[in-house]
Design a protein around this nucleic acid. Sequence first.
DNA 1: CTTGACCCTCCAGTGACTGGAGGGCCTATC
DNA 2: GATAGGCCCTCCAGTCACTGGAGGGTCAAG
Lengths: 142, 142
Amino acid sequence: MNISNVAKKTGLPPKTIRYYEDIGLIRPMRGENGYRVFRDSDVHKLAFLGRARALGFSIEDCRTLLALYEDQDRASANVKRVAQDHLDKIEDKITQLQSMRATLQHLVRECAGDNRPDCPILSDLATGRAPGALPTPDLRDT
Amino acid sequence: MNISNVAKKTGLPPKTIRYYEDIGLIRPMRGENGYRVFRDSDVHKLAFLGRARALGFSIEDCRTLLALYEDQDRASANVKRVAQDHLDKIEDKITQLQSMRATLQHLVRECAGDNRPDCPILSDLATGRAPGALPTPDLRDT
DNA sequence: CTTGACCCTCCAGTGACTGGAGGGCCTATC
DNA sequence: GATAGGCCCTCCAGTCACTGGAGGGTCAAG
Protein backbone atom coordinates (compact mmCIF):
# COMPACT_ATOMS: atom_id res chain seq x y z
CA MET A 1 0.00 0.00 0.00
CA ASN A 2 1.32 3.49 -0.80
CA ILE A 3 1.26 6.49 1.45
CA SER A 4 -1.86 8.24 0.23
CA ASN A 5 -3.97 5.11 0.61
CA VAL A 6 -2.64 4.70 4.12
CA ALA A 7 -3.46 8.34 4.77
CA LYS A 8 -7.05 7.74 3.71
CA LYS A 9 -7.31 4.58 5.82
CA THR A 10 -5.87 6.07 8.97
CA GLY A 11 -6.98 9.68 8.69
CA LEU A 12 -3.37 10.81 9.17
CA PRO A 13 -1.88 13.20 6.59
CA PRO A 14 1.00 11.81 4.49
CA LYS A 15 3.32 14.40 6.03
CA THR A 16 2.54 13.09 9.49
CA ILE A 17 3.11 9.51 8.40
CA ARG A 18 6.53 10.42 7.00
CA TYR A 19 7.26 12.26 10.22
CA TYR A 20 6.36 9.18 12.26
CA GLU A 21 8.80 7.19 10.20
CA ASP A 22 11.45 9.89 10.72
CA ILE A 23 11.18 9.62 14.48
CA GLY A 24 11.14 5.83 14.37
CA LEU A 25 7.55 5.02 15.27
CA ILE A 26 7.09 2.96 12.13
CA ARG A 27 9.47 1.32 9.65
CA PRO A 28 7.69 0.81 6.36
CA MET A 29 9.55 -1.01 3.59
CA ARG A 30 10.62 0.59 0.33
CA GLY A 31 9.82 -0.35 -3.26
CA GLU A 32 12.45 -0.31 -6.03
CA ASN A 33 11.42 3.21 -6.96
CA GLY A 34 12.08 4.43 -3.41
CA TYR A 35 8.39 4.72 -2.55
CA ARG A 36 7.29 3.63 0.90
CA VAL A 37 5.44 0.31 0.97
CA PHE A 38 3.17 -0.14 3.96
CA ARG A 39 2.26 -3.57 5.30
CA ASP A 40 -0.95 -4.19 7.21
CA SER A 41 1.03 -4.08 10.43
CA ASP A 42 2.24 -0.56 9.57
CA VAL A 43 -1.29 0.59 8.85
CA HIS A 44 -2.43 -0.97 12.09
CA LYS A 45 0.28 0.83 14.05
CA LEU A 46 -0.59 4.14 12.42
CA ALA A 47 -4.24 3.73 13.32
CA PHE A 48 -3.14 2.95 16.87
CA LEU A 49 -1.04 6.11 16.90
CA GLY A 50 -3.88 8.19 15.53
CA ARG A 51 -6.20 7.07 18.28
CA ALA A 52 -3.61 7.55 21.00
CA ARG A 53 -2.85 11.06 19.72
CA ALA A 54 -6.58 11.82 19.59
CA LEU A 55 -6.68 11.00 23.28
CA GLY A 56 -3.92 13.54 23.79
CA PHE A 57 -1.03 11.18 24.52
CA SER A 58 2.35 12.71 23.70
CA ILE A 59 4.51 11.15 21.02
CA GLU A 60 6.77 9.72 23.70
CA ASP A 61 3.77 8.20 25.45
CA CYS A 62 2.71 6.77 22.11
CA ARG A 63 6.13 5.22 21.67
CA THR A 64 5.82 3.60 25.08
CA LEU A 65 2.28 2.42 24.42
CA LEU A 66 3.24 0.94 21.07
CA ALA A 67 6.14 -0.91 22.67
CA LEU A 68 3.83 -2.27 25.35
CA TYR A 69 1.32 -3.21 22.71
CA GLU A 70 3.94 -5.20 20.84
CA ASP A 71 5.16 -6.88 24.00
CA GLN A 72 3.01 -9.94 24.58
CA ASP A 73 4.35 -10.27 28.12
CA ARG A 74 3.60 -6.72 29.23
CA ALA A 75 1.94 -6.09 32.58
CA SER A 76 -1.29 -4.12 32.16
CA ALA A 77 -0.19 -2.13 35.22
CA ASN A 78 2.43 -0.41 33.05
CA VAL A 79 -0.14 0.63 30.51
CA LYS A 80 -2.50 1.78 33.21
CA ARG A 81 0.18 3.94 34.78
CA VAL A 82 0.84 5.77 31.51
CA ALA A 83 -2.88 6.32 31.00
CA GLN A 84 -3.45 7.42 34.59
CA ASP A 85 -0.57 9.92 34.46
CA HIS A 86 -1.97 11.33 31.27
CA LEU A 87 -5.44 11.50 32.78
CA ASP A 88 -4.04 13.43 35.74
CA LYS A 89 -2.45 15.93 33.40
CA ILE A 90 -5.69 16.37 31.51
CA GLU A 91 -7.54 16.99 34.73
CA ASP A 92 -5.03 19.62 35.79
CA LYS A 93 -5.43 21.32 32.45
CA ILE A 94 -9.21 21.27 32.70
CA THR A 95 -9.00 22.85 36.13
CA GLN A 96 -6.68 25.59 34.86
CA LEU A 97 -8.90 26.31 31.89
CA GLN A 98 -12.01 26.42 34.04
CA SER A 99 -10.33 28.96 36.26
CA MET A 100 -9.43 31.11 33.26
CA ARG A 101 -12.94 30.72 31.97
CA ALA A 102 -14.45 31.90 35.25
CA THR A 103 -12.33 35.05 35.27
CA LEU A 104 -12.94 35.78 31.61
CA GLN A 105 -16.66 35.18 31.86
CA HIS A 106 -16.85 37.61 34.71
CA LEU A 107 -14.87 40.26 32.87
CA VAL A 108 -16.79 39.84 29.63
CA ARG A 109 -20.07 40.06 31.48
CA GLU A 110 -18.96 43.29 33.18
CA CYS A 111 -17.83 44.96 29.97
CA ALA A 112 -20.43 47.12 28.28
CA GLY A 113 -19.00 46.37 24.84
CA ASP A 114 -20.10 49.66 23.34
CA ASN A 115 -18.12 52.48 21.77
CA ARG A 116 -17.11 54.09 25.04
CA PRO A 117 -13.54 53.54 26.21
CA ASP A 118 -14.29 52.39 29.78
CA CYS A 119 -13.47 48.72 30.05
CA PRO A 120 -13.19 46.49 33.13
CA ILE A 121 -11.25 43.92 31.10
CA LEU A 122 -8.41 46.37 30.53
CA SER A 123 -8.70 47.69 34.08
CA ASP A 124 -8.21 44.20 35.42
CA LEU A 125 -5.25 43.49 33.17
CA ALA A 126 -3.70 46.83 34.09
CA THR A 127 -4.13 46.64 37.84
CA GLY A 128 -4.69 42.98 38.63
CA ARG A 129 -8.12 43.79 39.93
CA ALA A 130 -11.02 45.22 37.98
CA PRO A 131 -13.56 47.09 40.09
CA GLY A 132 -15.34 44.16 41.73
CA ALA A 133 -13.54 41.41 39.83
CA LEU A 134 -12.71 37.88 40.91
CA PRO A 135 -9.16 37.14 42.02
CA THR A 136 -6.92 36.57 38.99
CA PRO A 137 -5.36 33.11 39.09
CA ASP A 138 -1.66 32.93 38.41
CA LEU A 139 -1.62 30.27 35.73
CA ARG A 140 1.28 30.05 33.38
CA ASP A 141 1.93 27.15 30.98
CA THR A 142 -1.11 26.45 28.91
CA MET B 1 15.33 49.81 37.00
CA ASN B 2 17.38 46.87 35.68
CA ILE B 3 16.04 43.63 34.35
CA SER B 4 16.31 41.42 37.41
CA ASN B 5 14.41 43.90 39.55
CA VAL B 6 11.71 44.07 36.91
CA ALA B 7 11.65 40.29 36.84
CA LYS B 8 11.04 40.22 40.58
CA LYS B 9 8.32 42.88 40.35
CA THR B 10 6.43 41.30 37.48
CA GLY B 11 7.07 37.61 38.07
CA LEU B 12 8.33 37.28 34.48
CA PRO B 13 11.77 35.69 33.94
CA PRO B 14 14.45 38.00 32.48
CA LYS B 15 14.60 35.80 29.38
CA THR B 16 10.92 36.37 28.77
CA ILE B 17 11.28 40.11 29.24
CA ARG B 18 14.09 40.21 26.68
CA TYR B 19 11.94 38.14 24.37
CA TYR B 20 9.06 40.59 24.73
CA GLU B 21 11.41 43.36 23.73
CA ASP B 22 12.62 41.29 20.77
CA ILE B 23 9.11 40.93 19.43
CA GLY B 24 8.32 44.58 20.04
CA LEU B 25 5.90 44.41 22.96
CA ILE B 26 8.03 46.76 25.03
CA ARG B 27 10.80 49.24 24.21
CA PRO B 28 12.91 49.83 27.29
CA MET B 29 15.68 52.41 27.08
CA ARG B 30 19.38 51.61 27.34
CA GLY B 31 22.01 52.89 29.71
CA GLU B 32 25.52 53.86 28.58
CA ASN B 33 26.78 50.38 29.37
CA GLY B 34 24.16 48.81 27.08
CA TYR B 35 22.01 47.57 29.96
CA ARG B 36 18.25 47.85 29.61
CA VAL B 37 16.69 50.60 31.71
CA PHE B 38 13.01 50.08 32.50
CA ARG B 39 10.68 52.98 33.20
CA ASP B 40 7.56 52.56 35.32
CA SER B 41 5.52 52.41 32.14
CA ASP B 42 7.56 49.41 30.94
CA VAL B 43 7.08 47.62 34.23
CA HIS B 44 3.39 48.39 34.06
CA LYS B 45 3.12 46.98 30.55
CA LEU B 46 4.99 43.85 31.55
CA ALA B 47 2.64 43.28 34.47
CA PHE B 48 -0.26 43.75 32.06
CA LEU B 49 1.28 41.17 29.72
CA GLY B 50 1.86 38.74 32.55
CA ARG B 51 -1.78 38.88 33.57
CA ALA B 52 -3.06 38.60 30.01
CA ARG B 53 -0.79 35.59 29.39
CA ALA B 54 -1.99 34.03 32.66
CA LEU B 55 -5.51 34.25 31.25
CA GLY B 56 -4.28 32.36 28.22
CA PHE B 57 -4.32 35.20 25.68
CA SER B 58 -1.89 34.62 22.81
CA ILE B 59 1.01 37.00 22.27
CA GLU B 60 -0.82 38.51 19.30
CA ASP B 61 -3.92 39.02 21.43
CA CYS B 62 -1.70 40.66 24.02
CA ARG B 63 -0.30 42.98 21.40
CA THR B 64 -3.84 43.97 20.42
CA LEU B 65 -4.93 44.39 24.02
CA LEU B 66 -1.91 46.53 24.85
CA ALA B 67 -2.62 48.74 21.85
CA LEU B 68 -6.23 49.12 22.94
CA TYR B 69 -5.09 49.84 26.46
CA GLU B 70 -2.85 52.63 25.21
CA ASP B 71 -5.57 54.07 23.01
CA GLN B 72 -7.65 56.44 25.10
CA ASP B 73 -10.33 56.55 22.40
CA ARG B 74 -10.82 52.79 22.08
CA ALA B 75 -14.30 51.31 22.01
CA SER B 76 -14.75 48.74 24.77
CA ALA B 77 -16.57 46.61 22.17
CA ASN B 78 -13.21 45.88 20.55
CA VAL B 79 -11.73 44.66 23.79
CA LYS B 80 -14.79 42.61 24.54
CA ARG B 81 -14.61 40.92 21.14
CA VAL B 82 -11.02 39.80 21.73
CA ALA B 83 -11.93 38.50 25.16
CA GLN B 84 -15.08 36.76 23.95
CA ASP B 85 -13.25 35.04 21.09
CA HIS B 86 -10.64 33.84 23.51
CA LEU B 87 -13.32 32.65 25.90
CA ASP B 88 -14.94 30.68 23.10
CA LYS B 89 -11.63 28.99 22.32
CA ILE B 90 -11.16 28.11 25.97
CA GLU B 91 -14.61 26.60 26.11
CA ASP B 92 -13.93 24.49 23.03
CA LYS B 93 -10.74 23.26 24.59
CA ILE B 94 -12.48 22.39 27.84
CA THR B 95 -15.06 20.40 25.91
CA GLN B 96 -12.37 18.52 24.01
CA LEU B 97 -10.44 17.74 27.16
CA GLN B 98 -13.57 16.59 28.96
CA SER B 99 -14.28 14.21 26.14
CA MET B 100 -10.75 12.80 26.33
CA ARG B 101 -11.11 12.55 30.07
CA ALA B 102 -14.34 10.59 29.79
CA THR B 103 -12.79 8.04 27.45
CA LEU B 104 -9.62 7.74 29.49
CA GLN B 105 -11.47 7.42 32.77
CA HIS B 106 -13.51 4.63 31.33
CA LEU B 107 -10.47 2.80 29.99
CA VAL B 108 -8.45 3.25 33.17
CA ARG B 109 -11.35 1.99 35.23
CA GLU B 110 -11.67 -1.09 33.03
CA CYS B 111 -7.99 -1.97 33.18
CA ALA B 112 -7.02 -4.40 35.91
CA GLY B 113 -3.56 -2.85 36.22
CA ASP B 114 -1.92 -6.03 37.40
CA ASN B 115 0.92 -8.08 35.92
CA ARG B 116 -1.23 -9.88 33.37
CA PRO B 117 -0.97 -8.68 29.77
CA ASP B 118 -4.70 -8.26 29.04
CA CYS B 119 -5.46 -4.58 28.73
CA PRO B 120 -8.58 -2.83 27.46
CA ILE B 121 -6.61 0.39 27.01
CA LEU B 122 -4.40 -1.22 24.38
CA SER B 123 -7.37 -3.08 22.89
CA ASP B 124 -9.16 0.18 22.39
CA LEU B 125 -6.15 1.90 20.84
CA ALA B 126 -5.57 -1.08 18.57
CA THR B 127 -9.11 -1.56 17.36
CA GLY B 128 -10.90 1.70 18.03
CA ARG B 129 -13.22 -0.07 20.40
CA ALA B 130 -12.31 -1.85 23.61
CA PRO B 131 -14.73 -4.57 24.64
CA GLY B 132 -17.56 -2.44 25.96
CA ALA B 133 -15.83 0.92 25.61
CA LEU B 134 -17.29 4.34 24.97
CA PRO B 135 -17.09 5.73 21.43
CA THR B 136 -13.66 7.24 20.82
CA PRO B 137 -13.94 10.93 19.92
CA ASP B 138 -11.90 12.07 16.96
CA LEU B 139 -10.11 15.04 18.47
CA ARG B 140 -6.94 16.26 16.98
CA ASP B 141 -5.24 19.60 17.79
CA THR B 142 -4.79 19.89 21.49
C1' DC C 1 5.12 12.51 -25.60
C1' DT C 2 2.97 15.10 -22.58
C1' DT C 3 -0.04 15.84 -18.72
C1' DG C 4 -1.25 15.41 -14.13
C1' DA C 5 -1.16 12.90 -10.11
C1' DC C 6 1.60 10.75 -7.41
C1' DC C 7 6.08 10.08 -4.76
C1' DC C 8 10.69 11.52 -2.77
C1' DT C 9 14.08 14.55 0.27
C1' DC C 10 15.45 18.52 2.60
C1' DC C 11 14.83 23.02 4.70
C1' DA C 12 12.30 26.38 7.23
C1' DG C 13 8.61 27.95 10.10
C1' DT C 14 5.00 27.63 13.85
C1' DG C 15 4.36 29.64 19.54
C1' DA C 16 6.34 31.16 23.32
C1' DC C 17 9.71 30.67 25.31
C1' DT C 18 14.23 28.33 27.58
C1' DG C 19 19.14 26.86 28.01
C1' DG C 20 23.67 27.68 27.19
C1' DA C 21 28.04 29.58 25.28
C1' DG C 22 30.98 33.32 25.24
C1' DG C 23 31.97 37.62 26.76
C1' DG C 24 31.54 42.55 29.03
C1' DC C 25 30.56 45.36 33.38
C1' DC C 26 30.31 46.50 38.32
C1' DT C 27 31.22 46.31 43.16
C1' DA C 28 33.74 44.76 46.99
C1' DT C 29 37.43 42.79 49.18
C1' DC C 30 42.30 41.62 49.72
C1' DG D 1 45.77 46.81 41.41
C1' DA D 2 44.06 42.14 41.10
C1' DT D 3 40.46 39.10 41.60
C1' DA D 4 35.95 37.09 42.69
C1' DG D 5 31.21 36.81 42.08
C1' DG D 6 27.17 38.56 40.40
C1' DC D 7 25.15 41.04 37.28
C1' DC D 8 24.31 42.22 32.19
C1' DC D 9 24.69 41.56 27.03
C1' DT D 10 24.02 38.94 22.31
C1' DC D 11 23.42 35.08 19.54
C1' DC D 12 22.42 30.26 18.58
C1' DA D 13 19.97 26.08 19.26
C1' DG D 14 16.31 23.31 21.10
C1' DT D 15 11.49 22.36 22.60
C1' DC D 16 6.68 19.78 20.44
C1' DA D 17 4.32 17.84 16.71
C1' DC D 18 3.81 18.80 12.91
C1' DT D 19 3.09 21.73 8.25
C1' DG D 20 4.37 24.23 3.97
C1' DG D 21 7.08 24.60 0.18
C1' DA D 22 10.96 24.05 -3.13
C1' DG D 23 12.98 21.13 -6.28
C1' DG D 24 12.91 17.00 -8.52
C1' DG D 25 11.88 11.81 -9.79
C1' DT D 26 8.01 8.21 -11.20
C1' DC D 27 3.96 6.37 -13.17
C1' DA D 28 -0.38 5.62 -15.84
C1' DA D 29 -3.45 7.41 -19.27
C1' DG D 30 -4.47 9.52 -23.50
